[in-house]
Simulated assay, not measured.
Amino acid sequence: GRLDVALVPSIEYFRNPDWTIVSDACVACDGPVRSVKLYGRVPIEQIRTLALDEGSRTSAALVRILLKERFGLEPQLCPLPIGTSLEDSQVDAAMLIGDRAMLPMRDRYEFVWDLGQQWSRWTGLPFVFAMWIARSGVDLQGIDEALTAARDEGVARLAEIARHEAPGLGLSEDECLCYLRDNLDFQLHDRQRRGLQQFCELAARHRLAPAGVELAFYDQPTAR
């Protein structure tokens, strides 16, 4: 079946012109994110092969943009399936997301990039990983209020969420709470929107999304 409303990776939103952002709830960061990292076995200028965690399309686009824009690199890409260990791969560098990017690595690496931090330092803006999206023709009455209320309730219960989730992730309760409270940002305000717009334009420049996309927000309707 088809969903009317869903939490969607930002890169997929750019690729679907009939979708609209329907809430100021999102998943973003404004500085280090801790859960999206690039691990390099060689100096960054020498990267020729890059493995991309199959768990994130947006982060895969982000690392490709950063490498091309800042170093002129377009490495050969290969997938890193969920559940596959980075230590088992032979690539020059690999992008990991989620809890496995937050756990200690056995191997030593030439460098480790936190991609949220790299984006923020380069652009001066937050990075938005995912937003709530609705397809065209959906009755949006009450959607914004419901999603905002759900976001606010979750933010008010971060300590409880961290306590519940930590054991299954191999992280301490304090690590989980710090991540949710200090690294993630759940508000799609003006700076986040500007960061999203810049990512959209860069994705188009590198042919990772269509050109000429105009972001459409529930509170600022735009013909896309």
Rank of each mutant, 00 (worst) to 15 (best):
190 D>N: 12
116 G>H: 12
173 E>A: 15
136 S>D: 15
141 Q>H: 11
79 P>H: 02
81 P>T: 06
99 D>K: 15
27 V>E: 02
171 L>H: 11
146 A>T: 13
86 L>M: 02
175 E>L: 14
184 L>A: 05
123 T>L: 05
115 L>P: 10
59 S>E: 06
89 S>G: 07
174 D>M: 15
16 N>P: 03
222 T>R: 14
148 T>E: 13
83 G>C: 06
196 L>C: 00
87 E>N: 07
20 T>Q: 08
23 S>W: 01
191 R>V: 06
144 D>A: 14
168 G>I: 08
68 K>G: 12
2 R>I: 14
98 G>W: 02
1 G>N: 08
218 Y>L: 05
131 M>T: 01
11 I>G: 05
143 I>Y: 10
89 S>H: 04
55 G>P: 01
58 T>D: 06
62 L>N: 05
82 I>F: 08
47 I>E: 03
105 M>Q: 09
59 S>R: 02
87 E>A: 08
131 M>Q: 01
200 C>M: 00
197 Q>F: 04
223 A>G: 15
192 Q>P: 00
100 R>C: 04
7 L>N: 15
121 R>F: 10
41 R>G: 13
29 C>Q: 14
96 L>E: 15
69 E>A: 11
37 K>Y: 12
187 Q>H: 09
92 D>S: 07
128 V>E: 00
217 F>T: 00
